[in-house]
């Protein structure tokens, strides 16, 4: 397709959907009777509900069903795919890696975000300081991975370094290190990328709730002679507890689905694969539909309780 073609198609698609919206509005604008209003309601809801039913609900049920079938999706195999996930050596490593990701990323990102939010609170350059941590949120995980691959770049110890971390290692007298290739620690260095991306989110949410702590509470503690550390431990952290939990759970959900970082940094090699990446490989590279479906269902099962807990906490914050 030429560029003009693409732009034209884009125009058509947008016009199509806004057209649908316009038609619904115009056709139902004259309806006033009871039955008419029912029709109007249906017209308002139908496009969204149809898409959700056909694009989310039906596929989710189909995938759960497929996870009990073999690679080609034709023979029923019961729980075999799930058994593979929990017994096969490669799959077990995937599970282990995923567990490390999901534990470390939320904790570290939240800690950094919280500490930074407290440190720059009411500082002179607060806005600017926050923007620095915030910016990684705007860029793609592919871009973030490239940025960090450059940081981790490896050259032999005798050569000129172009990666900043190995340059630091070299200048303090250590050998240079293959950060992305050396198992098992390479997973940790991939996790650093996710922490780097997510800390800004943690900081924004936590900073907003720190600012919502009533001033007289802080003032009273200060008059009682509480030190900065004590204030942090006994006033700040308990006051923002619900927000802390929302931040932790939200980051764990994103982390469970992390795919781009692993694919761009190592391609899942050197023992770095995680659930969401393995799903992609099994479904679209190895064409093992059954196992791919089972991995997707596993992500679903792991995410669900976290989401429910997350929503409850959000409700609690709103209720205040």
């Amino acid at each position: 397709m030429t560029t003009t073609d693409k732009l034209l198609q884009m125009g058509i698609a947008v016009a199509l959907f806004f057209g649908v919206m316009g038609v619904i509005l115009v056709l139902t604008s004259r309806l006033r009777s009871r039955a008419g209003e029912r029709l109007q309601t249906a017209a308002f809801l139908a496009p969204s509900l149809l898409l959700i039913a056909a694009g989310l609900l039906y596929p989710a049920i189909k995938t759960i069903y497929q996870s009990f079938y073999d690679a080609a999706g034709t023979t029923f195999v019961g729980l075999d795919n799930y058994q593979t996930i929990v017994t096969d050596g490669d799959q077990l490593q995937v599970l282990r890696n995923t567990a490390i990701w999901v534990v470390l990323t939320p904790l570290a990102a939240t800690l950094v975000g919280l500490v930074y939010a407290v440190l720059v609170d009411r500082a002179k350059f607060e806005k600017f300081a926050k923007a620095l941590i915030f910016l990684p949120m705007a860029i793609s995980l592919v871009g973030a991975s490239i940025i960090w691959k450059f940081v981790y770049d490896y050259r032999g110890t005798d050569e000129n370094q172009i990666g900043v971390v190995n340059q630091i290692l070299k200048s303090v007298g250590f050998d240079t290190y293959r950060f992305l290739l050396t198992e098992p620690w390479n997973t940790l260095f991939l996790i650093v990328i996710m922490i780097w991306v997510q800390a800004g989110f943690a900081m924004t949410i936590l900073s907003a709730s720190i600012k919502a702590i009533p001033e007289d509470v802080m003032e009273a503690a200060r008059l009682d002679g509480a030190s900065a550390l004590k204030m942090f431990r006994y006033i700040t952290v308990p006051s923002i507890r619900p927000s802390l939990i929302v931040v932790l759970t939200t980051i764990s959900i994103s982390t469970l689905k992390v795919f781009d970082i692993v694919r761009t940094s190592t391609g899942g090699n050197f023992g770095t694969s995680v659930l969401a990446y393995e799903f992609y490989v099994q479904s679209f590279r190895s064409f093992n539909q059954g196992l791919g479906a089972a991995l997707a269902v596993l992500i679903f099962v792991l995410v669900t309780p976290i989401v429910i807990y997350n929503i409850r906490q959000m409700r609690r914050i709103e209720a205040r």
Partner: peptide, 8 residues
Amino acid sequence: PIQVTMIP
């Protein structure tokens, strides 16, 4: 999760 919907 979007992964669950992709193949179907």
